[in-house]
């Protein structure tokens, strides 16, 4: 039994049954690890299915999600061809749930993306510049840390007057400090290492150093953390819509549907509970996929 010489990271993975593939890069081995992790694959498929449902909603949904019917309100499963019944205005539940995936995914991903860009950039600048710039950036972030996330989201979107756009701005501001802190820590860790010193000594400009030597070490932890935030963002976004601060009626949105259906709790409880189940399934699948990515990217395991 010959052991491959531990020259690159991936060969340190002891269970590797294919020692021939010595030249595998880090990202290739991460992908292989994900494909061997059955649970992550299953939940990843569900996530993919939800994304596809959202994109192709007009093709998949059996009914028009806005079409109301006065006689067909809060009808049970299977009533006149409505597989999941109808809501309080007689609109088809299944179609509205399918369309609802759109705003949930949008409000789940856009804020995380914006916060990753803004927070990540600020964190790298702070961590790389050090001293006063760092203090200024990080102390400002500390202030936003001093709010519970739900409260900050409600405060900003509440003051700005609700709506999907304002909700996404509010959520971006909620996630920025945490991502900034992660990026700052990772940057500060590599900043003092020898290869950065060497690059500096060769006369490389700061931007070049950041692009070639810092980013590679920062993107990993930032990506892992950002992926775990998507499920939080979906929960918070639906919460904002539930409070009337996110998506506006009559748009189909899970949080908003939960809030308007709440009045009909005593008429048809099962229908009222369904949008929440959709939020839950989406959020837990994103959460578990993110856990899977985290453990696949953690080489030390």
């Amino acid at each position: 039994m010959t052991q491959a010489v531990a020259t690159s990271i991936d060969t340190s993975w002891e269970a590797d049954p294919a020692p021939a593939a010595k030249t595998r890069t880090y990202w290739q081995s991460v992908l292989i690890r994900i494909f061997r992790d059955k649970a992550t694959l299953i939940f990843g498929t569900v996530v993919l299915a939800i994304v596809l449902l959202a994109i192709f909603a007009p093709l998949i949904a059996p009914f028009d999600p806005y079409k109301e019917s006065i006689i067909g309100r809060l009808k049970p499963f299977g009533w006149r061809g409505h597989p999941l019944g109808t809501d309080e205005l007689g609109r088809d539940m299944l179609s509205r749930l399918i369309y609802g995936a759109r705003s949930s995914l949008l409000m789940g991903m856009v804020p995380v993306l914006v916060a990753t860009l803004v927070g990540g950039t600020l964190g790298v600048i702070g961590g790389f510049a050090g001293k006063r710039v760092n203090t200024a950036i990080m102390r400002t972030m500390d202030v936003f840390y001093a709010f519970p996330s739900v409260l900050l989201a409600v405060a900003i979107s509440g003051a700005m007057g609700g709506g999907m756009m304002n909700g996404m701005i509010a959520l971006s501001m909620v996630f920025t400090p945490a991502l900034c802190r992660i990026a700052e820590t990772a940057t500060a860790q590599v900043r003092s290492l020898d290869f950065i010193e060497a690059a500096r000594a060769t006369g490389a400009r700061p931007l070049t150093i950041i692009r070639h030597h810092v980013l590679g070490n920062v993107l990993g932890p930032v990506f892992i953390y950002a992926s775990s935030l998507v499920s939080v963002s979906i929960l918070l976004a639906s919460g904002l819509s539930f409070l009337g601060l996110g998506v506006k009626p009559p748009e189909p949105d899970w949080g908003l549907m939960l809030s308007t259906l709440r009045q009909s709790l005593y008429v048809n409880p099962i229908i009222c509970a369904m949008p929440g189940a959709a939020i839950f399934v989406t959020s837990i699948c994103f959460n578990l996929v993110s856990d899977g990515i985290r453990s696949a990217m953690d080489v030390r395991q």
Binding site: L235, G239, G255, L258, A273, P275, A277, F280
Partner: peptide, 8 residues
Amino acid sequence: VSLPNYWV
């Protein structure tokens, strides 16, 4: 932590 508590 993935459950929307308002739904619960």
